[in-house]
Design a protein around this nucleic acid. Structure first.
Length: 398
RNA sequence: GGGGGUGUGGCGGAGUAGUCAAACGCACUUGACUGUAAAUCAAGCGGCCGUUCGGCCUACGUAGGUGCAAAUCCUACCGCCCCCA
């Protein structure tokens, strides 16, 4: 089945405009995928989310694992045969994705260690020895210790849980290597990920649910190409590009990977979403990308504007009575909520007021990022992507 | 009038002779945040130098005193609080 249609390609870059059709609606690409790990976006009602121009939300297999397996299998009454867990949880009838839990193989293995990140602005310190603790990765999957209990997650179980969750798009279970993992480990891990990819395809029976394979390969060119060729040759409905890499290496990784993926299928860059990275991804040929930045940073008090971000909790904004940004059409701005009001709410001792502050901050950031990507789509449609990129980045870094 | 208590950095509040520029909160400042371990985390927060280490000065209501040494003990004064008249 062909769920993805490319409408226009940019003349100067690999950027492209498309429409992804899912059982719960269409997604115009490129698109930002908002992260709702636990099957909801904290502090926001379904109506709030609708106002933020959010097209699609990604939730997490790992975090919803137990709930999902306990839940009854309720198929939605629509023509599609997906489970209703996620759309019920979100309270929204919009396209959804679930991550396979593969990222947690990485984050759980390293969460005890300082300085372990997904994207490194600088080269990480090699003295920081690579040690995976409380976790064992094998051919079958991953054994790990959480809350003192032994657990196991592997490709088959991941697909099973994702079927239960009922997202429109699911991801194959993969292993994300650390930037400093050596060639030998990365190669071995890549082979494991490929093995798991085949199992995921085999176990995935639901034809109404798209399955995306994930390419890995660390920072190594030949492994990246090998991975892209292999995963790209399998009958996935789309492809995720995963990994931990240096800031500058990200472009290389995309350059090595994307030419080997089928042109007519959607590509999703996993977990990337800073302003400059969005442009880099899109011009490299990425259609979808998800990131916690809009939501997490909103909760941490950082609000985005076209001329940069601001940490609203800091005293500097105390006297500022202006709305977040003149002309910003976000739901918060439309309500004429001032910066100082958001600040006051976020710093309140009362949980109810705090939540209200979180709500305003979240709606602002989510709208901001979704709107930015919408503007990018328009710029591609009108053949002025390059100019729009330059202008946006210049203004943002002023 | 009598008795008791108390006075610490922007605020709250530890410390009750040496290891005190003074715990811990709050506030403030600055950094982080990229398939959420995250309504989070880190650093700074008297002044002047010094890259690090560190050095010097000024501080615990005010003024004296004891003592090698005081935010810590004594005396007086000032302010606040409580109890009894």
């Amino acid at each position: 089945m062909n769920n993805f249609k490319i409408i226009k390609k940019d003349k100067h870059t690999r950027a492209r405009l498309g429409i992804l059709t899912t059982p719960h609606g269409t997604v115009r690409t490129p698109s930002y995928v908002m992260v709702g790990t636990y099957g909801r976006i904290r502090y926001l009602s379904p109506a709030d989310i609708k106002k933020t121009k959010t097209q699609i939300i990604i939730c997490n297999t790992y975090h919803l694992w137990e709930k999902a397996l306990k839940a009854k299998s309720l198929k939605s009454k629509a023509k599609n045969k997906l489970n209703t867990f996620l759309i019920k949880s979100l309270g929204l009838n919009i396209p959804t994705m679930t991550d396979s839990g593969g990222f947690q193989v990485f984050s759980l293995a390293f969460w005890h260690a300082k300085g372990v990140k997904k994207i490194f602005p600088d080269k990480p310190d090699k003295a920081n020895k690579i040690q995976r603790k409380n976790i064992k990765v094998t051919e079958k999957g991953v054994y790990f210790l959480l809350d003192g209990r032994k657990r196991f997650l592997g490709p088959e179980l991941s697909v099973k849980i994702q079927d239960k969750l009922g997202a429109d798009i699911i991801f194959a279970f993969d292993e994300l290597t650390y930037l400093l993992d050596n060639y030998t480990y990365t190669k071995k891990s890549l082979e494991r990920t490929h093995h798991w990819a085949k199992i995921c395809l085999q176990k995935h029976k639901n034809k109404h649910q798209m399955l995306f394979g994930i390419t890995q390969g660390g920072p190594f060119k030949d492994l990246r190409i090998k991975g892209a060729k292999f995963i790209g040759s399998l009958p996935f409905d789309g492809f995720g590009i995963g990994g931990s890499f240096g800031k500058e290496e990200m472009i290389d990784v995309l350059r090595w990977t994307i030419p080997h993926l089928p042109e007519e299928k959607p590509r999703h860059l996993l977990g990337v979403g800073k302003i400059e990275d969005i442009f880099r991804a899109i011009e490299s040929g990425v259609d979808l990308f998800d990131c916690v930045i809009p939501t997490r940073e909103a909760r941490h008090g950082r609000l985005y504007t076209k001329t940069g971000h601001m940490d609203i909790r800091r005293g500097y904004y105390t006297e500022d009575k202006k709305i977040i940004e003149r002309g910003c059409g976000c739901p918060t701005c439309k309500k004429k909520v001032s910066r100082s009001k958001i600040r006051e709410l976020l710093k309140s001792d009362e949980p109810v007021r705090q939540a209200q502050g979180q709500r305003y901050a979240l709606m602002h950031n989510m709208w901001f990022f979704n709107n930015l990507v919408e503007e990018i789509r328009n710029s591609i449609a009108q053949g002025r992507f390059g100019a729009f990129k330059n202008k946006t980045l210049t203004n943002f870094n002023k």
